[in-house]
Design a protein around this nucleic acid. Structure first.
Lengths: 331, 331
DNA sequence: CTGTTAGCGCATTCAC
DNA sequence: GTGAATGCGCTAACAG
């Protein structure tokens, strides 16, 4: 039975203590400059401090538009494979005075009911990392146009920030070609994903351009385990000169199976290329050449949109952040 | 210029369309069973559907007590070193109809001002992973007793869930002793942390009990890099039989420096023990024996408190989740 | 069972 | 400048 004696002070309490009307107190405490007599303003501020007054932003949001909340939507927390990126993003969002509500949505099925039961429904904007839904679905779910698609499933109405992966793939394949690679294998994720399909197409094109024969393909699910499982089938006899993976984790799995082929991290039998440039590749044990984009730039593009919510006009073209090849020992 | 024509329907609109009062509409739409004539209930539901009505939960939370929001407070996103744990936690919290607002607070300095400007200030409860503040500070910051300390800095007033690390340390040192270890080194984090001090004391005690000589200590910051840096100084001549680290990441750093001493992951010169049992230790390259606790149990203890908020009475004793030794190749 | 009333806490007219 | 009054959308409390 927890009694609730320290009732949180409202602006009325502050006004009373300061001997002014609620309206004056409200104005004095407003972040925007409102006309208030200097003397009264000081009294109000002092009273607020004295009472430990904190405005109830839920109530405020009834009359104002914004709640200063943005939702980040992931499928599974591992979508945030790159914690550095996420940390940067979180920090920057907080810098502009907004807070983050983190939504983990497995399937699209019961999402709406779920949303409706939480504050998340009222966010200023939704950042969609999860690939569970397309732009239209998310707009409908949140009942807002303030949707920023980061999963590649945007449309003409919703803005997006994307890595221009093609540029990175081009550099990686060029690197391989320059090193004499003549044949390759490609390990991919689900081909049903649009971005994945685009990657595959891009690899094929670049292989062709450089006269590299695509000997084999394997399908995984981006995970370490799936790379592990695929390794044997790819590196038996007829081993390609290089193996390209569409995730670093799969490359790590392959590397662990074939570690003997990488004394001191250097390739002897085949070169290994990953994708995403996750921070794990900074560990000595996984010196995997990868493809990554400038996280700072990526985040700042997201924030540019977030800090000017009016910018969410239909037709805003997707922002591309170029990806680069990041050479390490494995290739 | 996005016009705002599709004004969101309010419960008044629904009531009007259904030809009932707002109160009846409210009751009919309530999740809790409220007395409403069956016929009217149906009319209301149909009207709501027809209008695409979604209740404004911000308004609701004005009159109801709960906002169904809980804050998770971290120092740095890497506090969530164990994403599996976090994923589980997030999922479970959502299961009970609450949503998570994620707060990254570097220092305690400007936190209050930050809180005051965000929804987070009104959450139902705060889960504190960050070690930035003690229980009293957090209670004051959130102006609530609904604070659950997960960082070891709880007091008599705030409940806590903790890993009983001593049990795991005991098992690990016993394992070492049984394998003939007679000397050891200990790699720790900041000794200023209470939990870290407790760990160190526990290791010392167990070393003594088993007649293991503590040859050296090194201080890191739990990171891979700090383990990497400490490795040389620990394993030169006079190398101890075992090295115990208070984080897996530090053990990984050491392992990478001394990989030659671990052919096929097995120790030849010294045994290596980590701490936390992060999922990285599942990778072949880092088969580090560790100390971990039952994450499912840990999370369910947290949820037990969260789902009965009245349980947050002063004096609730900390809940202990036993930690166990998790043997792998490195020891 | 139902409808009316009165707030929740705040920001905003609009007169003064 | 200021303050009284009003409304944001919803629900608890109260009469009917």
């Amino acid at each position: 039975m927890s009694k609730e004696p320290p009732k949180k002070p409202t602006i009325a309490d502050v006004a009373a203590l300061a001997g002014v009307s609620r309206a004056v107190a409200s104005r004095a405490l407003s972040s925007e400059p409102r006309p208030v007599a200097e003397e009264k303003r000081n009294r109000v501020i002092k009273a607020a401090q004295q009472l430990g007054f904190k405005p109830n932003l839920l109530a405020r949001s009834l009359t104002k538009k914004s709640v200063n909340l943005v939702a980040i939507i992931v499928n599974h927390i591992h979508d945030l494979s790159d914690l550095d990126l996420f940390d940067l993003l979180l920090n920057e969002i907080q810098q502009i005075g907004k807070q983050v509500i983190l939504l983990r949505v497995g399937s699209v099925e019961r999402v709406e009911a779920f949303l409706r039961n939480g504050i998340a429904y009222h966010v200023d904007a939704a950042l969609v990392f999860s690939d569970f839904a397309d732009a239209a679905t998310v707009r409908h779910m949140f009942d807002t146009d303030r949707v920023l698609m980061l999963n590649g499933r945007h449309d003409a109405l919703s803005p997006a920030v994307l890595a221009d992966e093609a540029s990175g793939i081009r550099e990686a394949v060029r690197d391989a070609a320059a090193k004499g690679v003549r044949s390759a294998a490609l390990v991919t994720g689900r081909a049903s994903s649009l971005v994945e399909a685009a990657r595959i197409a891009c690899y094929r094109e670049e292989f062709e351009r450089h006269g590299i024969a695509l000997l084999r393909m394997a399908q995984g699910d981006y995970s370490y385990q799936s790379g592990h499982a695929a390794a044997a089938g790819l590196t038996g006899r007829d081993c390609p000169d290089a193996i390209f993976c569409t995730s670093d984790a799969m490359a790590m799995g392959i590397l662990d199976v074939c570690r003997a082929d990488f004394p001191a991290g250097r390739p002897t039998r085949f070169r290994l290329y990953g994708f995403d440039d996750v921070s794990l590749t900074e560990f000595d044990a996984y010196p995997i050449s990868s493809i990554g984009f400038d996280k700072t730039r990526y985040v700042s593009e997201i924030l540019r949109l977030l800090s000017t919510l009016e910018a969410f006009v239909p037709g805003t073209p997707p922002v591309q952040v170029p990806a680069r090849f990041v050479p390490r020992l494995s290739a």
